[in-house]
Amino acid sequence: MRIGELAKLTDTPARSLRYYEQQGLITPRRLDNGYREYDDYLVERVLQIRGLIDSGIPTRIIKQMLPCLGEPRTIVVEDADPELLVVLARERDRMNRRIECLIRNRDAVDGYMRAVAEASPTAAAAAVGAL
């Protein structure tokens, strides 16, 4: 597939995909005409990369983690950045705090929706299936 299709499938700007390529996170094939050709497996890879970046993990650490993300999952630790475990522990703890916050917010939204539905039959009818 071409870069535009991968961008659309992953909701990732083409500019970001080129950056991922520059950082060694994805490797498209090159056609004879010089165009990039992206394999189907890169859709999942880009989604994983985006999720890790959104979690605050730098691309230099993601690059070291890539072998662990594919199938079969293979842990590779040679040439690991010495601060890798420190960075990953910090980011894992930050993710856990975000998850806890999201769970609290989800529960608050559910509680509010239930209260509105109980207080207003019209709102309850409109919210059928939302709870």
Rank of each mutant, 00 (worst) to 15 (best):
E83M: 07
R2Y: 12
E83P: 00
M113N: 05
R45I: 05
G70M: 10
R45H: 02
E37I: 00
V116I: 14
G111A: 14
I99M: 12
L47Y: 01
V87M: 03
V43S: 05
P28Y: 09
D11S: 15
L88D: 03
D110T: 15
T74Q: 13
Y38P: 06
D32G: 14
N96G: 06
A14M: 13
D93V: 05
A14C: 13
C68M: 15
G111N: 11
L17I: 13
E5G: 04
R92H: 14
D39H: 15
I3L: 12
M1K: 12
L69E: 07
R90Y: 09
V76F: 08
P58K: 04
R50H: 03
G4T: 04
R29Y: 11
Y112N: 13
A115F: 03
T10H: 04
R114S: 10
Y19A: 05
R114F: 07
M1V: 12
R36L: 09
E37L: 12
A14F: 02
D39S: 14
E5H: 09
L66G: 01
I49P: 02
A126H: 11
G24E: 01
K8G: 14
Q48D: 07
R98I: 06
A80M: 09
E118P: 01
N105V: 11
P58S: 03
R50K: 15
E5V: 12
C101R: 14
P72F: 02
V87L: 07
P28C: 08
T12N: 05
P13V: 02
D81I: 08
L25R: 00
P28R: 04
Y41Q: 13
G70P: 07
I61S: 09
E71Q: 15
L47C: 14
R29F: 10
